[in-house]
Design a protein around this nucleic acid. Structure first.
Length: 828
DNA sequence: CTCTCCCT
């Protein structure tokens, strides 16, 4: 056994662990941070006889941690790293023939499993920090377990974790033995709030920092959700406390030098305002006090939109414990939790694992390469959610990596071999095909590395990717990492050389289209910053950008959801490039519809891609299309009552209604507004040829159209039973009025009716017409349905009254004998 | 308060 300079709590449990792994192929070791498991356990495993001559691979979630662990172990052995102990991380590999312990980061193992599914020469795989439940470690465990259950039953699996509830993993590993070790940590006193605090996080944190400064000693670490909150809190503390303290922000996008300032001990008491980066990734020396707001930003994948959403959410109890532990590294400490003990009991026990909440496209591609069609054939701690997986497969199909049935295509196989997200792999392969591989590598690197930071600090505000290319050319902060990744990608493609000096924005757009085919966006109106995305959702450009001039974009980073997402990064793309890339998915169609505002039929020929109309032009509708759209427009707008009916047509409808009511046995058709609306396609549509607008409806012979609803026989019946005119004794033909409601009537001058005893009748004699007798000036005198009694009695009264007023008109004493006339009295 | 953190 090796001699370590200081004993750690883990030492006591090592013999037991070795025994467990002799008896069982798997084991679970639960030990809090600081117990020494990362360095002690792999070295101890070297003594296992069943591993003799075989390599131990240990998985670390972070590159820095992997390198540090390897270096530390090599030093314990008195060797250089790369001897018995080596490491492999993204850009670096330090291993040799002699290497027995290889520390790798998570992506490396997933990749190696694909090229060497039997893990030739590997005797044990250790999953360190498994409680973080990253996507790659969940996938790797499922695959390694698959290997162990198949051809490698000798393979040892050891899962090490800090806070994870060990029971489910042990069960997953075939009831593996569980071992627990104490940590080596100083006690941390937890202080809760008495009442749930109200207010904004930066203000609450500022107040808590002041309390902590007064109550405790040592440096203070404050956990806030993001850079915005950190800046606000920093400003308040500086305003209130001045230069008595060092206020150090700490978050991932901060330049390296600023991060150093936060991590290293300073000359004065220090307050570090940090994001989650300080929860696991970075350790700050000298912290005795933690102020925890209890919130963090968490990425949520929405399978409905295929977009990610960054949300401020309450942290889990496990996360709160990890944060509090940061106060007990050097001495007993204090943790101020800005929530109540009651709220503490409502926290989720663990942060949801990535496999449940993130984009599964990379996992789906790896599964396809592994030959797994149904993920249920592997064992998972948490199975990938079917809806997320379906969305991921849909994307991979669109990228050309999967056949519709789910099998891997040759392109998919090629993509899976490239060390990046499938979107970027598709971009790279496409770039290679058009001899723009080098540019494609630079683009992929820009999109996969941390965003560049301009020289003056702050963030790049332009959402145009071409702006990022220019910042890269100017060597903005972060350029080195991007160049390194680009070089790495070029090597993966078998290329040499550096980034191209200039890039044609048109080529940039075209390449991005290949990786983000689902993210085409069309400007809603010229000059607008609002776009419609191909998935049917809206997006708004963020930042000041020249992209506003662009009718089409590829939206690369889209955050949000709800009604309108935020497009943080995009690139212009030409319509021609879209047409070239999506020739097979673009549909051409005609749409004939009623434009309500212009009150006319509009015909558009459209080129569509998903929810997007790529182009459109006006066209002429066929008579049938126009008639259909116009009738829809009539019903939606003015309705039947609003049609330009002539008086004759109106009367005709009333006549038909009158006959229908008076002679129900004839069963005449119903011409009411409602009936005409229901049958508009039948009676009106055939008469609309050449009509495109409401205004043009006046050209239509509505009466003719109406008559089309009646057979010839029925038309004849209407003419007979409801004549338009009736001849009176004077010889005049007087129009019969058919009102909308009530009985038909005849308005006629009294003098024209002399001698007529029988009231004329309509509807085969069933209904008497009502007579409105008029004065010579056409004023109504009398309304009657019984002429005979009028001549006998009422007439004399009328004559007495009116004779003086109309002396030129005949007023005979005997109306029975008088000649009916339209004329005045004959001149003598 | 424009966008947490990692990794092939």
């Amino acid at each position: 056994m090796l001699k370590f300079p200081t004993p750690t709590p883990i030492d006591a449990i090592l013999p037991e662990l070795l025994e467990a792994l002799k008896a069982h192929p798997s084991a679970v070791l639960q030990a809090p941070p600081g117990a020494g498991k990362t360095t002690r356990v792999p070295l101890a495993l070297l003594d296992l006889p069943c591993l003799s001559g075989q390599r131990i691979v240990m998985l670390e979630p972070r590159r820095l941690a992997a390198v540090n662990a390897a270096r530390f172990m090599a030093r314990m052995l008195g060797e250089e790293v790369g001897g018995t102990v080596g490491y492999s991380i993204r850009f670096e590999r330090k291993v040799s023939r002699a290497t027995r312990i290889e520390v790798v980061t998570e992506g490396i193992l997933a990749r190696r499993l694909q090229s060497d599914p039997l893990l030739e020469g590997v005797g044990a795989v250790i999953f360190d920090e498994f409680h973080e439940r990253n996507l790659a470690s969940d996938l790797s465990l499922a695959l390694v377990r698959d290997v162990q259950g198949g051809l490698r039953d000798d393979l040892r699996i050891l899962v090490m974790s800090a806070t994870l509830d060990a029971e489910p993993v042990a069960r997953l590993l075939g009831d593996a033995p569980m071992l627990t070790s104490e940590g080596r940590r100083f006690p941390v006193e937890i202080r809760y709030q008495k009442h749930e605090p109200a207010g904004r996080l930066p203000e609450l944190a500022t107040r808590a920092v002041k309390t902590a400064l007064a109550e405790s000693s040592g440096d203070i670490l404050v956990f806030l959700p993001g850079a915005g909150e950190i800046r606000r809190c920093e400003r308040q503390l500086k305003d209130d406390l001045g230069d008595s303290l060092i206020i150090a922000p700490l978050y991932g996008d901060l330049p390296f030098a600023a991060q150093e300032l936060a991590i290293m001990p300073g000359p004065k008491r220090k307050v570090v305002l940090a994001t989650n980066i300080a929860e696991t990734s970075l350790t700050i020396e000298g912290v005795r006090v933690v102020v925890d707001t209890g919130y963090s930003r968490q990425l949520r994948y929405d399978p409905g939109t295929g977009l990610n959403r960054l949300e401020v959410m309450r942290i889990s109890a496990a996360s709160a414990e990890q944060r509090a532990g940061r106060a007990g590294r050097v001495a007993p400490g204090t943790c101020y939790r800005l929530w109540t003990e009651h709220t503490q009991r409502t926290l989720l026990p663990y942060t949801p694992p990535e496999i449940l909440v993130s984009d599964l496209a990379p996992l789906a591609l790896d599964l396809a390469l592994w030959g797994v069609n149904d993920p249920a054939s592997l064992s998972w701690l948490d199975a990938p959610p079917p809806a997320h997986l379906a969305e991921a497969k849909a994307l991979l199909t669109q990228l050309g990596a999967l056949e519709p049935r789910g099998a891997l295509t040759p392109l998919g196989k090629r993509m899976a071999a490239l060390p990046m997200h499938p979107r970027l792999a598709a971009l790279l392969v496409a770039g290679e095909a058009i001899e723009e591989g080098s540019l494609a590598c630079t683009l992929a690197a820009l999109l996969s590395e941390r965003d560049l930071v301009p020289a003056g600090g702050g963030a790049l505000s332009d959402s145009d990717l071409v702006d990022r290319m220019e910042a890269l050319a100017r060597k903005a902060e972060g350029s080195k990492a991007v160049e390194r990744a680009a070089t790495y990608f070029r090597r993966a493609l078998g290329m040499t050389g550096g980034s191209p000096a200039t890039a044609d924005p048109a080529v940039v757009g075209e390449l991005l289209l290949k990786g983000y085919p689902d993210r085409i966006a069309k400007q809603r109106a010229p000059g607008s910053d609002r776009y419609l995305l191909a998935n049917g959702f809206g997006g708004k450009l963020s930042g000041r950008t020249a992209l506003r001039d662009q009718p089409f974009l590829v939206a690369i980073e889209v955050a949000g959801g709800g009604t309108e997402a935020e497009i943080h990064l995009a690139s212009a793309v030409s319509l021609d490039a879209i047409r070239r890339s999506f020739a097979r998915s673009i549909t051409r169609g005609r749409r004939v519809f009623w434009d309500e505002r212009e009150a006319r039929v509009v015909t558009r020929e459209e080129e569509r891609l998903g929810a997007l109309v790529l182009s459109e032009r006006q066209a002429n509708p066929s008579p049938e299309e126009a008639a259909l759209a116009l009738t829809e427009g009539i019903l939606a707008g003015p309705g039947i009552a609003g049609l330009p009916w002539s008086e004759t047509a109106r009367q005709y409808r009333n006549r038909v209604r009158f006959v229908a009511e008076a002679l129900p046995e004839e069963e005449l058709p119903d011409l009411s507004d409602q009936a005409l609306a229901e049958r508009i396609g039948e009676w009106l549509a055939p008469h609309l040829s050449g009509v495109r607008s409401l205004a043009q409806l006046s050209r239509v012979d509505l009466l003719g159209a109406l008559k089309g609803m009646l057979t010839w026989k029925e038309q004849k019946l209407v003419d007979d039973a409801a004549p338009t005119h009736i001849a009176v004794p004077s010889g005049s033909r007087i129009a019969v009025e058919y009102p909308e409601h009530g009985a038909p009537f005849l308005a006629v001058k009294l003098q024209e009716m002399f001698g007529l005893a029988e009231t004329p009748r309509l509807a085969r004699g069933r209904v008497p017409v009502v007579i409105h007798l008029l004065s010579p000036a056409r004023r109504p005198i009398q309304v009657t349905a019984d002429l005979k009694s009028f001549w006998n009695s009422g007439y004399l009264e009328v004559k007495k009254e009116l004779k003086g007023r109309y002396p030129k008109h005949p007023w005979p004493d005997d109306p029975w004998a008088a000649q009916a006339t339209r004329q005045l009295k004959k001149r003598r």
